[in-house]
Amino acid sequence: MSAVGLEATRAARLDSRRARARAVLGQLVRSASFDVGAIIVVFWVVDAIFWHVMVPQDPQALNPLAALQGPTAAHWFGTDWLGRDVFSRTLAGATSVLEIAPLATLLGIAGGTIVGLVTGYYGGAVDALVMRLVDAFLAFPLVIIAVLVLALLGTSEITVIVLIGVIFTPVVSRTVRSVVLVERDKEYVASARLRGEGDWYIMTAEILPNVTTPIIVESTVRLGYAIFTAATLSFLSLGIQQPSPDWGLTISLGRQYLQIAPWIVLFPAIALATLVVAVNLVADSVQQVMAR
């Protein structure tokens, strides 16, 4: 064997896949907006799991005598119309949305990936039909579909998760399909066919690993939207029901006290704002780093 290869190998000894993962992570950590976003997201995730030990008071404990009090040393964020501690309720309110959003995202990504892979790979009539359906589906603002379905079917946490997941499926499938269309025409797919591989193998073993980057990016973006949508549904009283300390629900119910006790809605609103902005900061950084 020639001495030629030796040199090239030495230069490329680095395990390139792990090296890339490390490089991506390194770039992410170096991005300030990712760091800020990630810290906030981690805080809320920890809070969603361990809020029992973090809250100073029971978020459901009623105290009618202390209702509608402004922020004090005893109640940092004040109390609501039933005298419950707004600070404790704000901490406890992260759980519901952080349960619904990731599950719904997972569902939408899974569904969208399957639909996108199949339609993109096969193309033709099935693709045309499914894409028309997707078009028609996307003609409805997501919130309107949700309102329609939840108002008519009734609501539960499972329904909300499934609904958001189903609503996301066509959106994700479009993204996945567009990248699959590009990959499908690359010669490695042709060469797989030339060695007699089946369609299923080509889709899952050959193409799928090559479209993971856009799927990861889409997942982070979708997670932001899922939180957005879940909170909006709670706000419209179509998601989480009372007496949950869920942020959207609290804001919806506390609205009537806006003029006399704005803190009831203000703090959950700020909490929700930090979470969605943080998730989007992370998504944005991931997108930028992955695009390189």
Binding site: K186, E187, A190, A192, L194, G196
Partner: peptide
């Protein structure tokens, strides 16, 4: 059949970047 053809005839493409699965 695809498989019969595969063992009889193969192809090499212009651009090795896209002809090899990068993963």
């Amino acid at each position: 059949s695809r498989r019969e053809r595969a063992s009889y005839l193969q192809m090499v493409f212009q651009n090795p970047d896209t002809a090899l699965n990068a993963k």
